[in-house]
Design a protein around this nucleic acid. Structure first.
Lengths: 241, 241
DNA sequence: TCAAGTATACTTGTATACAAGTATTATAAT
DNA sequence: ATTATAATACTTGTATACAAGTATACTTGA
């Protein structure tokens, strides 16, 4: 059994999590970062041994990851699907779909409180950049969009978001960690886009919203791919079971 | 422990299902039909005793239902959320959103094979009506829409559908069973709408699609509510733990 | 060397056991 | 009568045990 040297998922985010959640989060990061390649077959017993837990939490984790569609539960073993370029695009299709729907609701609401909340999160993001804290930045970035979605109080939109969130979170984490090392000058632009987004919500300007949304996605999308590839290259060195 | 007299979920659909799935499906039906009222607190142990299985499958079932947002997992016990009028509307928001997106993709595809498949399903629906088989009709109805969604080969749209499907399925089952008894003359109209839908896909007529889609929803939506209420009334007589 | 059949070692699904924690209830003291 | 404390009976999360089923590998026969 290969000793797991270090964890990809921020341990501070797991303070109250169950063993099942821990395994799910860590495994998800390994899959999305490319450390565990797609096609790999995961066994409950092996994973249980690797993570030093029993099969119960592992089973739970595999169920979670299967519902996120990054693994496929088969008769014998779970097959890693991972994220291809196509699937990353699909994720953004969904985000675009959701957030456009949400915006249509927002324009008919009082958004002053929401705008204030978003501004706060934006400030947090700035500070995260200042201290080069990629994880904190990712957290706030995800929170930013979640806050917008929660604002319309639509349980099924929230359901979709909740299904998408873990994968998004991992994707953003991987992406941001890479950029804090390499492309530090990207961040002013990201912040600008979020500012535009807030402005669009404030002024209820549909076009501005769509524009900043697309910008936001282009920001992440184009770069994630490069990074993801490089991560995959990088992880070729890691020993595989 | 109250003996469970009869099952709401069609047992033939559970031929290869695990005990966890069985519990999930049956419990879902009871919640959505109103037999288990919202606010009820479910305990793993009690459910395990009721369904004569161990806690493992029950835990699995509760996780599934929680991801579908019809129960809420709390520190002690799972609280039944159920479907309010608002949530039923929200489900149709999502369906509208998905299927509109799907249609946009379809108009850029060769849909001859899809149309053929849908026609087959429609014939099946007709036969189900002929033999007054509400369950079979529901099955084909769900399959109809799933077939359309699968056609565009979009894993994340499919993911959303998969999350929505069980609840939809239960909702349609409850609705159709009621209508086979009471409002038998609704069905020609339902069939007509599905025909229109196929026609829209065939001719790639966006307006026709939107129209038939809305019709389809109105068909189910307005009536579901009445039925749901009446079901709730009806189930008041059933003894509750 | 190759085919067929059996045995073995894995797989999942379910049951059960146990530990840690929480609510409730009963008891005791003011 | 009311409040505080302690005991009890629940809760969940995790580990482990076991049964049924499947793939793999090995052995035996030609």
């Amino acid at each position: 059994m290969a000793e797991t040297k270090e964890y990809l998922y921020p341990s501070k985010w797991l303070s109250k999590a169950s063993a099942g959640d821990r395994v799910a989060c860590e495994l998800r990061m390994r899959i999305i970062s490319g450390m565990v390649e797609s096609g790999t077959i995961l066994s409950e017993n092996t994973l249980a041994a690797d993570f030093a837990v029993s099969r119960s939490p592992v089973r739970e984790a595999l169920k979670i990851l299967a519902s996120e569609h990054i693994i496929r539960l088969e008769r014998m073993g779970a097959v890693v699907i991972g994220l291809t370029e196509k699937e990353i695009e699909e994720i953004y299709d969904v985000r675009l779909l959701i957030e456009t729907f949400v915006f249509e609701r927002l324009v008919r609401m009082d958004t002053t409180k929401l705008v204030q909340e978003l501004s706060k999160i934006l400030e947090m993001m700035k500070i995260a950049i200042k201290y080069q804290d990629a994880d904190e930045f990712s957290y706030q970035d995800v929170l930013f969009h979640e806050t917008i979605i929660r604002a319309i109080d639509h349980s099924y939109m929230l359901m979709i978001w909740n299904n998408l969130k873990p994968v998004m979170e991992s994707l953003i984490l991987v992406s941001m960690r890479g950029r804090f090392k390499e492309k530090y000058d990207d961040f002013p632009r990201i912040l600008k886009n979020h500012e535009l987004y807030i402005e669009a919500i404030q002024s209820k300007d549909r076009n501005l919203m769509i524009e900043s949304l697309h910008q936001n996605f282009n920001d992440v999308q184009g770069k994630v791919e490069d990074l993801w590839m490089s991560q995959q290259m990088l992880s070729k060195g890691v020993e595989q079971e």
